Computed example of a mutant assay.
Amino acid sequence: MSRLADNPPAIAPHPTLGRFFSKADQKREFVRRVFDGGAASYDRIERLMALGSGSWYRREALQVAGLVKGMRVIDVATGTGLVAREAATLAGDPGLVIGVDPSAGMISQAGKQLPIRLIRARAEHLPFSAGVFDFLSMGYALRHVGDLTATFREYRRVLKPGGIACVLELTRPENAIRRVLLRAYMKGLIPCLSRIATPEHENRAGTTLLWRYYWETIESCVEPATVLAAMQAAGFVNVTRRVRLGIFSDYVGHVPT
């Protein structure tokens, strides 16, 4: 487990990916559209990509971060509800979990599978009063937001004193061999599998675009030190990052009591 360096780098905005949009203010609409297009097949591809281990990993990460029975949880960028499902199990009651996501397609898919409250909203503007939640989770979506600093300030705002934020994210491996292997897997194999696994009546083009974009955001993701610095600048304390397999990062921060 690594801790924030004594002199963290300046906080930088998320990169704009010129292959998909030319201006930063176009990112929000592009992200919403690309996830709408791939929503129907998202869970199917995720299971292939994670080799069936995703559910266990998400649940274990939430437990280690401090999610326990009775906590009120907000799952930001909930997508199809993969993290929210594990949060509901740990909290002991689906009624304690609220999922938010800007994509209508993703919200629709989550609603078919989970008995939790679902709201369309963005990470930078959560439609809740201050100090409402005990625990905030976000699974593999931080690199899709437009403003890191605004996002973490909003996370701190909706959490109670003593509340916990747990952000799961994929990170570009530091090891060159792992980078090559991950690139081949994500840029070659996964788009191919997505085309095969997506029925003709679903949006194959949208699914392929989603997974192409998914890889590009990993390739150009914000450095872990910048994420940690942004959390600390927003007012979180005891900010840590746990790394697994050189790829999976669990960022955890606490609101002061």
Rank of each mutant, 00 (worst) to 15 (best):
L210C: 07
F133A: 15
P161Y: 01
L118V: 11
G253K: 08
Q63K: 13
A130I: 13
T198W: 12
G95C: 00
G79L: 10
A110R: 13
V100P: 07
P127I: 09
S53M: 15
S108P: 05
R143I: 02
A50E: 01
N7V: 08
Y251E: 03
R242S: 15
P199T: 00
R153W: 08
V227Y: 03
R59P: 06
L181A: 15
P13W: 02
W56R: 14
V227D: 00
E200R: 15
L114S: 07
S108G: 12
Q232E: 00
R33C: 00
N7Y: 02
I190S: 13
G37F: 01
H144Y: 09
I177N: 12
G235E: 02
R120Q: 14
P15D: 09
I116D: 03
A234S: 07
A150V: 02
D6F: 14
G81R: 14
L245M: 14
A84M: 10
H125I: 00
G206D: 14
I164S: 07
A205I: 03
R58E: 04
E216T: 15
P102W: 08
V252Q: 09
P9Y: 05
H254R: 11
G79N: 11
R122Q: 09
T217R: 08
I98A: 10
S41T: 02
E154G: 04
E154I: 01
D250Q: 11
N175G: 05
G70A: 11
